[in-house]
Design a protein around this nucleic acid. Structure first.
Lengths: 90, 90
DNA sequence: CGGGCTTACGGTGTGCGTAAATATC
DNA sequence: GATATTTACGCACACCGTAAGCCCG
């Protein structure tokens, strides 16, 4: 599982649609779809159901969404903290 | 910044020595050294000072170490939660 | 010299984009 | 037929390991 995969997942979960998420992420849709499937494969659990209009979050997907957001937030914060610390203490 | 980079960083920080960290991670030392340098480059801040015996954590490195451990813990926990949720709710 | 970090280099695998296929309304 | 996801395919980039180089006690 990679941070990119989590970012991809969050976008798809928020858009509930792979095509729109791909546009938002500035990547093409087939690789995005594939990486979501790979993520589901790694976790051993489906995260979405596929519908004619897009995708719907399953309970496991909703659980991951919270965690993914939290992880990505902490990553961003870490970068800020490290830079600020380097700035301050040389 | 990738999760692998954070795992590599944590090992080097704990061992205070790239060679030992490489053994622990079952990777060879040159790529490990390079990825640490790349991480420093991405962050725009050095994380270690190089010494004849190995490496010493700088303040920015100590700050990152805490965050990295926390992030990696949350990643592991997320996997558990997602699997448990999928198990429970089908 | 010995131990450690770094640079050089070649190979492999992962991830992307385009194009074609499949499915549902 | 339109909109959406998935599969096929070829290519580029990232990462690794081996080998060689560099620095300091």
């Amino acid at each position: 599982m990679s941070l990119d995969q989590l970012r991809y997942f969050v976008a798809v979960a928020e858009e509930e649609n792979v095509t729109r998420a791909a546009r938002r992420l500035h990547v093409s849709q087939p690789p995005l779809s594939r990486r979501i499937r790979e993520l589901e494969g790694e976790l051993g659990a489906p995260l979405f159901t596929r519908t004619p209009r897009g995708v719907d979050l399953l309970p496991a997907g909703r659980a991951l969404l919270e965690h993914a957001r939290s992880i990505l937030r902490e990553v961003d914060r870490s970068v800020d903290v490290v830079r600020a610390t380097a700035e301050r203490d040389g």
